[in-house]
Design a protein around this nucleic acid. Structure first.
Lengths: 309, 309
DNA sequence: CCGGGCGATAGGATTCGTCTATGGATGTCA
DNA sequence: TGACATCCATAGACGAATCCTATCGCCCGG
């Protein structure tokens, strides 16, 4: 019922040599073993594959068919094992990289470039998610590695800070605070702030609230449930609200939409922490490689130098 | 070093169930056996395929790769075995049919039509050869079945007469014998006859010579070594020779070239025997099927009714 | 704290693959 | 024509691989 690849190789040897003795020699087994295996194969397939006279060995029609098909099947099998071995050893594998919109500009793009350089054999499969989904999907095995903004810690997921950057303000060009080149935190006292919901990035959220308290006020916060970039920008330009976001993202957002400008937030500047996350239970060498590249990337770009306060 | 398809099926069961116990049940083996086989597979591939906690079983990156590739490899293997089984059982196989130019019109075409009707799943691969090559190639396994005109018998090749038909004369319209509707053998006394070399079809050649002797003369024979149809016809129209060929072939030749006509040879008419040949040592059911169709074809078309003398 | 679920381990029985030795058939050469 | 060589098939023994049952250890939930 079942034919092992070994037997197919035996068959191919006989089909090529048309001689049991020589084929057996080539396979480093005895001639009786080979005869036996071929006979068993013929019984399994319910058809003779060779016509044997003691003087000549010939392929039957069925034998010719198998001689044509067997190498194809063997190649498919070899490829399956080879690809698996590669994935296991971390060569030429596919990495499912989860990211959030806020990490996509300035961080994701730089990381992708670095990966392309370090591991041109990797296939990177970037997928966008809401922040909270990334740890969950890493845990469920739907992702191999993730980028997120200070996410909720989760069992089974490792994480480390990849980038620290100041928070910037995004606001309409017609906003009164847009006039100054920088915005001190205390100026935010009477503003409504646009932020992600706290559960998505607690540390980030708390850092901003803490900075406001330090400046002597409790901020009024409008958390938008649907953290899509366009929705955020649309609300900023039409309302008199102030958006807060990590600088790399804010720069891109300001560039992308007319009527919106970015301003540094100072006194004090607030640090956003962007983390790289990976599953704790699958020590894949490919993931380790990506991590190494991410760290190199962070060092090379000074992502971890504490920003000037 | 070698992974049997059975182990791949074991792996697929675990990859689908993500549960060793249930997978083992599905495979009708015990759970320890399954665990053992999977562990051996992991050792062979030098990479873990699953992350096992006693509470949860997950695929690693390598495991996901294999889960994707294994069904492909298994399908390729299954296809190889399936095609071989079919070739062995005579279903949907390819038949290499050797024929000679003289059999190609009137006999080959009719047989191909009949095969198409009886076995639409067969692929027929017709190949043209000189007569002498056909038994040789059958013997060598390069052909599955052959059509030839009274060929030299050969060890390892079976044959039976498929068609008996009178020999016709082919001659230029300007030839003096072209005037009469039939040509008695005795009128050939002073002609040069075009024939194939004797070794290609001894019985056919001898039959013609015998008929001439019976009519009281020894024929003058010009055997053309290169028995290509066009060469034969070209010589007929330009010279005052008489070609002799089986009627079905002669009819086609006369129709195909202006300036050449066919005339029945009578008193007596000479019978040409067209045989079907097959290897004696490979009792392939596909060959048997083709033979059966050929016989049906012969009966249906009256190919074996002895022609009127 | 304890019971149930689940994968890993241990040890013995069976099947499978390979070996050496030998038989039998078929060409070859003196 | 008869002795010999070649080559595939068969027989029986040995070793490895596979499968089984029984049991352990771990972890979660009650």
């Amino acid at each position: 019922m079942d034919v092992s690849p070994r037997v197919l190789r035996y068959f191919m040897a006989v089909a090529e040599e048309l001689h049991f003795g020589r084929a057996a020699m080539r396979l480093y087994i005895s001639q009786p073993s080979l005869s036996h295996q071929i006979r068993k194969l013929e019984e399994t397939l319910e058809t003779p594959l060779f016509v044997r006279s003691s003087r000549r060995v010939q392929l039957t029609a069925a034998g010719r068919t198998l001689a044509h098909e067997a190498p194809i099947a063997l190649a498919a099998l070899e490829q399956a094992l080879q690809l698996t071995r590669r994935a296991g050893s971390g060569i030429a594998t596919t990495i499912r990289l989860g990211y959030t919109p806020v990490t996509s500009f300035g961080t994701l793009t730089v990381l992708l470039d670095a990966l392309q350089e370090d591991h041109p054999d990797f296939t990177i499969d970037p997928r966008e998610f809401y922040s909270a989904e990334i740890p969950e999907r890493l845990c469920a095995g739907d992702l191999d590695i993730g980028l997120a903004l200070s996410p909720q810690p989760l069992d089974g997921v490792n994480g480390e800070i990849l980038r620290e950057e100041p928070v910037s303000a995004l606001l309409s060009t017609r906003h009164r605070l847009a006039a100054a080149p920088t915005i001190p935190v205390k100026d935010l006292r009477d503003e409504t702030l646009q932020l992600f919901p706290r559960r998505l990035a607690p540390a980030y959220y708390d850092g901003i609230v803490a900075a406001c308290h330090e400046a002597g006020f409790s901020p009024e916060i409008c958390a938008f449930e649907d953290p899509r970039v366009n929705a955020m920008l649309a609300r900023l330009s039409s309302r008199r609200e102030v958006g807060l976001a990590p600088t790399s993202f804010a720069e891109h957002a300001a560039k992308a939409s007319t009527g919106i400008v970015r301003r540094d937030v100072v006194d004090p500047s607030i640090v956003a922490e962007l983390s790289v996350l990976w599953p704790a239970n699958d020590p894949s060498p490919a993931i380790a490689s990506v991590l190494a590249t991410a760290r190199r990337c962070a060092e090379h770009n000074g992502w971890l130098r504490s920003p000037i306060t």
